[in-house]
Amino acid sequence: MHKLILIFLLTFLTGTLITGESQKNTVKEIKVVKIDKDGLKKIIRNRNEKILFLNLWATWCVPCREEIPDIIKLAEEYRDVDFVGLSVDLQEDINSKVIPFLKANNVFYRNYINGFDNDEELINFLDENWSGALPATLIYDSNGKKAVFLEGKKTYKKFKEEIERARLRK
């Protein structure tokens, strides 16, 4: 009987420890995969009644890094909005720069890395009037229609206003 209790306890404890560890890893685990034109089209199109907040950034872009804490705050506040980051860092910098930055700043919304054929293809796909200056943010309404294109660093207040405006679009 004692043996059985011991086995049960051991199994239970081991199970708890493993589960606990894997849960911890799930939270800490950040995956950044590349996205191409078709992938990004799908994200924009498959809205599932949700607004899309798409932020283009890079680890080398100082104003991008400065506005990200405000975006995190908004992502916590608007759980019904789909927040997506798209880094234009080089793909070989995913593990050395992009993921460490996302971890250090607790960026919990999903992030991709530019996998378009070249920078100009991505720029023109998102907005033909965009010069390529970073950061840039696009908000799409729940039908996948572009509500606003914002070039340059923006404030928490400005982002909030634009999210609210996009929510009113049907």
Binding site: A58, W60, C61, V62, P63, V88, D119, E120, I123, N124, W130, S131, G132, A133, L134, G152, K153
Partner: peptide, 10 residues
């Protein structure tokens, strides 16, 4: 006329 990413002029 071409485009590319760069650092924003401060």
């Amino acid at each position: 006329q071409t485009k590319a990413f760069g650092c924003t002029i401060k």
